[in-house]
């Protein structure tokens, strides 16, 4: 399963790589990273990717996670990827807006790894 993680914090990359170490080794998961919304969009338009799941932060400089979500929903109406938004604790406004824009699920920071893995497992079974 291809997962695109969008976050302006570069340290998210080693964190996720280490977190999914076993899955990556087994070839169950393939992680891609983008440092901004713009990066994420260009990555998606290269076409080669068949990203199933996008994990995106909301608060990013430039294109925000919400704008990215909006763009994805507009550009990929067919076979849309699942989008999971990562929101900061205690930010009900962004949560509501993400829901309105068509986010599939939410994660709150700090990330609960067990919950994240469980959600991904559910996608694998259902998808």
């Amino acid at each position: 399963m291809k997962i695109l993680v969008v976050d302006d914090e570069a340290d998210v990359q080693p964190l996720f790589t280490q977190l999914f170490r076993k899955e990556i080794r087994k070839g169950e998961v393939e992680l891609n990273f983008a440092l901004s919304g713009e990066d994420a969009l260009s990555f998606l338009t290269t076409g080669i990717s068949e990203v199933v799941l996008i994990l995106s932060d909301i608060n990013m400089p430039g294109m925000s996670g919400l704008e990215l979500l909006q763009n994805i929903r507009e550009q990929h109406p067919l076979a849309p990827p699942l989008v999971m938004m990562i929101t900061a604790y205690g930010d009900p406004e962004n949560l509501q807006r993400a829901l309105d824009l068509g986010a599939d699920d939410f994660l709150t920071k700090p990330l609960d790894f067990n919950k994240l893995k469980e959600k991904i497992r559910n996608i694998e079974y259902n998808g």
Partner: peptide
Amino acid sequence: QNPLNFVNNFAEV
């Protein structure tokens, strides 16, 4: 919040 999240998450990983 963000730096602290990294500390917590990296420690767990």
